[in-house]
Simulated assay, not measured.
Amino acid sequence: MHSIRKPRVFLSHSKKDVNFIRRLEADLRAAQCEPWIDDVELRAGQPWLDQIFRSGIPSCEVVLCYFTRNSAESAVFMQELDARLIERLHNARVSLLLYVADSGLRSRLRLDLQRLQVPELNEDNYSSIFPRLVAEVWRCYAESLVQTSIDSERIKRLEAELRVRELESDASESIFTASEQAEFKAIWARIDRKLPLNVFVERKRPPKPLVGGMVELDSDVSLEAGPDAQTLEFLLFVGALFRQSVLKQKFQPSTYVLHDAVESDLKNRLNLNADEFQISFEIPFDIESELLKFGFAQRQYAPPPATGSRLENMMRQPFKLMFTSKFDRFAFWVEQVLGDQDATAILVNAA
């Protein structure tokens, strides 16, 4: 079970009435209260007035002022009853309980204090008044707890309302949900990378003339491994390639589109004549696996047609990849967030 903190009571009094206050202190502790008396709680070396007004009174739920003929002559006691202090106590929800040693002292209080209910407390009526005093302390303490809880709940409710408004504002300003934003950002970080690409360039063997001016029809497909054959090293920007080729596809992903985009960039960069040179390379990643991994594609069963030989049907893949709606959302996200970067180079020379 959670323990309930005891109510703290600041005892404002004259030093000349300390014996009576000590009795009151002991009885309050027995009634599960925590009295605060300046000569006990003050730390050595600290300004005593600062301790009373900054540390003592504000830390209590109740300020109990005991007004006697001695305290009427005490400057400190009268400061503790200062009107501005009482107003600050009210604003801080600290309750003020004022008692007089005899009824004749009520007339010596300020007019604003005379309008308050000021019970008499002394040795003669102590046994009958003290239980009422304790009940009043606990009542003030309970009211303080209730008000504190109300304020705390009000603050939490206001914070929740502000958060809801912020979320509604974000939702109205953003086309994508927060989870989509986070996921697409993480996926793009995986896609937008650099990979080494080795390119083999070879000169085609010229056609061999035959008798009568004829040429070998298939001789132009062979390559000549000689001084003109070389391997070039590049860096492939996967993000740029993904944007310029994959995201422009509509229904089914095709690795040929990626290959054609890289080959076209290589021919332009190397200024090669397609009739004289052959370019060969391998894309250094499996685009189909990545699309499946990110949820951008899914396998669909594609039964073989009724026509065709049994061997042809066995060799044909029974599944095909199709783009998902998530792929379309991601393509839209890339367009909205990253802007128009289609002109970004796919390749750069390796250092």
Results as ranks from 00 to 15, higher is better:
3 S>L: 14
5 R>S: 15
9 V>Y: 03
14 S>F: 04
15 K>Y: 10
17 D>A: 06
21 I>D: 05
21 I>R: 06
24 L>E: 07
28 L>Q: 03
30 A>Y: 03
31 A>I: 05
36 W>L: 14
39 D>Q: 13
53 F>Y: 10
56 G>E: 00
61 E>R: 02
61 E>M: 06
73 E>V: 09
75 A>Y: 10
76 V>S: 09
77 F>S: 00
79 Q>H: 12
81 L>Y: 03
83 A>L: 11
86 I>D: 09
88 R>Q: 05
90 H>D: 13
93 R>V: 08
93 R>G: 01
94 V>L: 08
101 A>S: 13
103 S>A: 13
107 S>G: 14
111 L>I: 13
112 D>F: 06
112 D>M: 12
113 L>D: 09
122 N>D: 14
128 S>N: 12
133 L>I: 01
137 V>T: 05
141 Y>E: 04
141 Y>H: 13
142 A>Q: 12
144 S>G: 13
147 Q>Y: 15
157 R>P: 00
159 E>Q: 14
161 E>V: 04
162 L>F: 03
166 E>C: 02
169 S>T: 11
170 D>G: 00
176 F>S: 00
185 K>F: 10
186 A>G: 05
191 I>F: 04
213 G>L: 03
214 M>R: 15
220 D>C: 05
222 S>P: 02
225 A>M: 11
225 A>Y: 12
225 A>V: 14
227 P>C: 09
228 D>F: 12
232 L>Y: 11
233 E>G: 07
235 L>A: 06
238 V>D: 00
240 A>K: 01
245 S>M: 00
249 Q>D: 01
261 A>R: 12
262 V>F: 01
268 N>D: 12
269 R>M: 15
271 N>V: 10
277 F>M: 02
280 S>Y: 03
281 F>P: 03
282 E>R: 09
285 F>N: 00
285 F>D: 04
286 D>W: 02
287 I>Q: 07
295 G>K: 03
295 G>Q: 05
304 P>M: 00
304 P>Q: 04
304 P>T: 07
310 R>I: 10
313 N>A: 14
315 M>Y: 15
315 M>I: 12
315 M>Q: 14
315 M>A: 14
317 Q>D: 14
319 F>K: 09
323 F>N: 06
328 D>N: 11
335 E>D: 08
335 E>W: 01
339 G>W: 02
339 G>H: 03
342 D>P: 02
350 A>G: 04
